[in-house]
Amino acid sequence: MYDYTTLSEAISGLQERGYTYDFNLRPDCLHCPELDRQLSPDEFTITETYRFEGMSNPDDNAVVYGIASNDGLKGTFVDAYGTYADTVSEQMIQKLNFRR
């Protein structure tokens, strides 16, 4: 694991190591808009996780995930500490370790 001070440093570091795609969360998958590709929870692995906490504002809390698909697609997913936890499937909650 690497040590990053900011969210943007973590994203840049991951991109430098080949995590080039951005993923968005959907209720039952991660979606890569650039490729119009969806990954269900059993089609990807979380390879790295970095958490950041805002010093003065809890809304600044975030986590960036390094994501690798089973067939080698690599990218990042950024979440504001479980903001989406009530709108995703139980499988996605378990995969991303959201807390309700």
Score class of each variant (00 low, 15 high):
Met1Tyr: 12
Met1Arg: 12
Asp3Leu: 14
Tyr4Asn: 10
Tyr4Glu: 12
Tyr4Ile: 07
Thr5Trp: 11
Glu9Cys: 08
Ile11Asn: 11
Ser12Thr: 13
Gly13Asp: 08
Gly13Cys: 10
Leu14Thr: 08
Glu16Ile: 08
Arg17Thr: 09
Gly18Ile: 10
Tyr19Met: 02
Tyr19Phe: 09
Tyr21Gly: 05
Asp22His: 11
Leu25Phe: 02
Leu25Ser: 06
Leu25Gln: 05
Asp28Glu: 09
Cys29Tyr: 01
Leu30Gly: 04
His31Trp: 05
Cys32Ile: 07
Cys32Met: 09
Arg37Ala: 08
Gln38Val: 13
Leu39Ser: 00
Leu39Thr: 00
Leu39Phe: 00
Pro41Met: 03
Glu43Asn: 07
Glu43Leu: 03
Glu43Val: 02
Thr45Met: 09
Thr45Lys: 06
Thr47Pro: 06
Thr47Ile: 02
Glu48Cys: 08
Tyr50Ser: 04
Phe52His: 04
Phe52Gly: 11
Glu53Met: 10
Met55Arg: 15
Met55Thr: 13
Met55Val: 14
Ser56Gly: 14
Ser56Thr: 14
Ser56Lys: 15
Asn57Cys: 15
Pro58Ala: 13
Asp59Val: 08
Asp59Phe: 13
Asp59Pro: 13
Asn61Thr: 08
Val64Met: 06
Ala68Val: 03
Gly72Met: 07
Gly72Trp: 05
Leu73Thr: 05
Lys74Ala: 14
Gly75Lys: 04
Gly75Glu: 03
Thr76Leu: 06
Phe77Lys: 03
Val78Leu: 15
Val78Ala: 09
Asp79Glu: 03
Ala80Trp: 10
Ala80Val: 11
Ala80Cys: 12
Gly82Trp: 00
Gly82Lys: 00
Gly82Cys: 01
Thr83Gln: 13
Tyr84Pro: 00
Ala85Val: 04
Ala85Leu: 05
Asp86Pro: 11
Asp86Cys: 15
Asp86Tyr: 12
Val88Ala: 04
Val88Tyr: 02
Gln91Ala: 15
Met92His: 03
Met92Cys: 04
Lys95Glu: 05
Leu96Cys: 03
Arg99Phe: 03
Arg100Pro: 03
